[in-house]
């Protein structure tokens, strides 16, 4: 456990220069949604915040690791396991979600106009982020940030920008989610969390397999 915490702390240290910008996203995006579209906060605002913060985090870490590629020599020569190095990144991505959620809840309590997030909505947002992490992380480990830069950006834009419009379309009745509409909040939460964990676990397994074979 201590080694995982050390590795998460490592990621924080590496991306320290980007932390202020990430903090700005976490606080600023919900407020931006509020000013641009007072009726479109809640799930849309939070999911956008989380996606952007997650993208910023994962991309900046991949950028620094690519820029200082030789640093992986000393990291892997130290008593850190390759499995631990990869898994800690996934844990870190979950921590990003937790931080985004905490700040959104605080903001929504402080600003009444900011729509509060329900538990089911929070779970769905986690699912979206897990999907993004689950797809992008193995690709980044396998091909590196340079080759996956445009894929990463496309996925982030597609999910981050498309999803709020999707939510708006559902709310406006343009898209029907009759099947999902029949699910209780508890079922939605359980389904979202289980699917998220399955996606993250499968993705982590692939990433570990790729990283274990990497040569420095």
């Amino acid at each position: 456990m201590k080694k995982y915490l050390s590795l998460i702390f490592k990621d924080l240290i590496i991306m320290k220069n980007n932390l202020p910008f990430t903090a700005l996203i976490i606080v600023g995006v919900p407020l931006l949604f509020l000013t641009m579209n007072p009726m479109g906060t809640g799930l849309a605002a939070f999911s956008m915040t989380y996606i952007l913060a997650l993208y910023m985090t994962l991309q900046s870490l991949a950028y620094y690791e690519s820029k200082y590629r030789k640093a992986e020599n000393i990291l892997n020569a130290a008593p850190y396991s390759r499995r631990g190095i990869v898994l800690s990144r996934y844990i870190f991505s979950v921590l990003v979600y937790v931080v985004c959620l905490v700040f959104y809840v605080i903001l929504s309590l402080a600003i009444p106009r900011l729509e509060r997030l329900g538990a089911a909505e929070a779970a769905v947002a986690f699912f979206i982020g897990s999907l993004m992490t689950g797809v992008l992380q193995p690709l980044t480990y396998r091909f590196g940030i340079e080759k996956t830069r445009y894929i990463n950006m496309a996925v982030m834009i597609g999910v981050g920008v498309g999803f709020p419009y999707f939510v708006k379309a559902v709310a406006g009745g343009k898209i029907s989610l009759a099947l999902l509409g029949g699910l209780s909040p508890v079922t939605t939460i359980c389904l979202a969390l289980v699917l998220s964990l399955v996606i993250l676990a499968a993705s982590a397994a692939v990433s570990v397999s790729v990283y274990k074979k990497k040569e420095f």
């Binding site: 590496i14 320290k16 220069n17 620094y64 200082y68 030789k70 992986e72 020599n73 000393i74």
Partner: peptide, 13 residues
């Protein structure tokens, strides 16, 4: 204890 080249570090730190 490992020393590789002139050290393999994250130079921005």
């Amino acid at each position: 204890g490992v020393v590789i080249d002139d050290g393999s570090f994250y130079d921005h730190l």
